[in-house]
Structures are given as C-alpha cells and as structure tokens.
Design a protein around this nucleic acid. Sequence first.
DNA 1: TGTTAAGCGGAGGGTGCCTCCGTATCTTCG
DNA 2: CGAAGATACGGAGGCACCCTCCGCTTAACA
Lengths: 216, 216
Amino acid sequence: MDDHTDQTRKPRADAVRNRERVLEAAKLVFNAGGPEASLEAVAKRAGVGIGTLYRHFPTREDLFEAVYRREVEQLSEFAEQLKNAKDPVDALRRWLWSGVEFVATKKGMVAALALAVQSGSELHAFSFERLTKAVGSLLDRAVAAGAMRADISPEDLLRAFFGMCYMHDQPGWQSSVLRMLDVFVDGLRVQPVAKAKTRTNTRTAKPAKAAVKRKR
Amino acid sequence: MDDHTDQTRKPRADAVRNRERVLEAAKLVFNAGGPEASLEAVAKRAGVGIGTLYRHFPTREDLFEAVYRREVEQLSEFAEQLKNAKDPVDALRRWLWSGVEFVATKKGMVAALALAVQSGSELHAFSFERLTKAVGSLLDRAVAAGAMRADISPEDLLRAFFGMCYMHDQPGWQSSVLRMLDVFVDGLRVQPVAKAKTRTNTRTAKPAKAAVKRKR
DNA sequence: TGTTAAGCGGAGGGTGCCTCCGTATCTTCG
DNA sequence: CGAAGATACGGAGGCACCCTCCGCTTAACA
C-alpha cells in the first residue's frame, strides 16, 4: 500500500532468463503435443525445476496466455488493418479466415484461447479482451453500415468461432470450418442482396460431401 | 463364426446388476460434475470396485456412449418427427434448438458427444452415426426443396453445433447459442425470401450485449 | 452339491498436479 | 570487495486419478 519508497530492486537475472526458457519450452511442447501436455515435461525441457515453472506461471492458463500473447496481438492488429477494407462484412469474414489459419499453425492455440474464452476467469482476461475489442470493432462497422444484424455480440461471435475450431482434430477440418464460417457470415448479413452464392466458389469449394467423407 | 453350439450361458445376474448400477451412478456423476469426473468416484458411488467398472466399460468414452445412448436416441427420433413439418428449414432450426435443450439438461452430454464427434474413433461410432443420419435427413429434405445450400454435410453441421455448445459454461450461454444458431440457419438458406428478421424476436432476444455481460 | 467359468475388487505401479521449504544465488550497500 | 538480506531455485513429497492384473468369490449348470 504505502509504497512511499518505490525502490524496486532490479529483477534477478536468473529469474528473467528462466522465465524466458520456460516460455520457449512451453511453446514447443504445446504446439507439438497439444495443450494437455505435461507441465513437468515443459519444465524438464526448459531445464528448470517444476517449482520454478509454477512460480512464474501459477496456472496452466497463465502459461497459455503468455505463450500465445504474441499471436493474439497479431490477430488483433490484423483486425485493425481490416477496418479500412471496403466491404465490412467481407472484412469480418477475412478476419475469421485468418483466425483459422492461426489455429491451424499453432496446435495448442485453440484450446488455449478456448479456455480463455470459456472459463471467463480474469486471469487470462487479456486475450479475451483484446480479441473481443478487435472483433467488436469489425462488427460495429458492419452494423453501422447497415450490412449486418445488430443483435450479435463480439463475445457470441468469438465463442462460436472457437467452438467451431475446437471440434476439429481430424484431417480436412480446415475446409469444413471455412465452409461453416461462410454460412455463418452469410447469416449475419442483413441484406441478402442477391445472396451471392458465388462466394462459395471463391475458395476452391470442394464438392462438399467429398471433402468431409470419412477416410476409412 | 462357427457358432455351432450356440450354448451361450445366461449372463450372470450380478454382472447385469452391476452394469446397471455403474450406468446409474455415471449418469449422476457426469451430469453433476461434468465429463471430467473421476471414474473412481463413479465406481464408488455405484458400490462396485474400479475393476468392475473398467471391465464393463473399458474406456471413458464407452461409458459416455452408454450413458447418453437414450438421449441420442430421443434426439434422433425427434428428427424423424420433424420430417413431416411444413418448412424444412424451420424443421432443422427446431431440431437444433431441441439439441440445445438436451445439452442444457445433461451437463455431461456435450462433452460426451463432442468426443464422439471429435475423435471419430469407431468405439463410439453409434452416437455419431445416429445423429448424422438424423440431421442428414433434415438437411436433405431442405436441400431437395431448394431451400438450403447443398454444400454442407451433416458432419459439418453437427460439429459446428456441438462446437458452439461446447464453448459455454457460463450463465446465459443458452440464449447466446440459440442466437448463433439462428444466424447459422439463416446462412444456410438459399432463398432469402424476405429474410424474416422477425424470427429474431420470437424468442425474447435479449439486447445481445446484456445477455453476455460477465457477472462480476 | 460339485464343478467351473465368469465376474469381482482392490492393491499396485505409473503419471501428473501442485506445495512447501531448505538451499543457492543475485543485488545492494557499506 | 565482502557481507547481508532479499529473491529465486529445485525437487521431494503428498495427493488424486488412471488403468492393469490376478487371486478370490459366486452364479450357472449338471
């Protein structure tokens, strides 16, 4: 409370170093083995004791948050850029697409963000808020332009998005999710204006059924 | 194959009884504590040894499958009934709504079905196939009537559906999911035909934002 | 009632979570 | 530079859960 002195010691060098090591290791381990991966494995890989890991990141979510902070940032920035796009609805769609891309690259990211979105605890509020704001601005613009229904919140949208991504481990999930997102964005439009089914083809839309056919 | 004798002993009474007990206990435990609940807790509650539980249900998924078999059946039957509905698109929407209802009641059911849908292993193929067929028939009818785009597979739809449900633990999730489903079904239409935004109001659509507001 | 296979149950080995605290190391200050 | 004290380290240990394995029990059948 009475921090009158404010004489904050310089943080210890080893502490800083270890934090970084853990982060590095966690990124590797999560991206490879998914978000269920053992934290002890992370610690071992980082060459630190399990206690050290827990001191820096008291919960698994804290670690997620830290690991994927950069990615979230990027995604949010991309939303910023898209604010200048012509068609606000299309901007939203493109943002969602890039979200799929991210998820595809970072295996652990979905679950990490899913957790953030799901549990709603303030611990990992950062990602959630950042993304909410990002998608919110896109939504607002589209709504303001009268192109999109107004009764959908950014939270709704994010949850739906991650929900869809969450369901997919199997091969071919990407095209499936992209298709679903197309449908979804279509549903968001307020003015069907000739309901361009053309769009469906812009992205090498598979013959649907075939794209999903179970492999065996 | 060469079941020439066919002299199958009557199954032991205690085995049958125990299986039932485990099922009963599992239903309680899963519905209350979610699908992560300890199997040992289930066994204890059922008054059987852990070994007995595992003999009857070698994997957690097997247990899920057995526990929620009835629910899946009901849901599928409801789809049958809806085949007689006037508007095939509306039929689909109503089916999805009832799905939400199910999920709301059975806390463990989402994750159970999600698993079934997700992992795609043949162990719990039952639920997945049953539901796929159910939703498939609804889809087909709508497509045949020219009311719905044809490039969406039942699997896609199911995964999207469960994905949306999966994301929701927090209060107010139901209205959110219902809203998202509305959007989704709208997106599925092929003919906007006056794009009834009336529907949005049929179910006391909250002011969106408010419905999602975090509680603290 | 005896034989026998089906079924039972829980001990035990393994993994992972998280805490706690004695020890080591870094920063600061004289 | 050296001492003092703050800060961080690491891993042992307690707990919970997973799942297997096998000696014992018990129901079905003759």
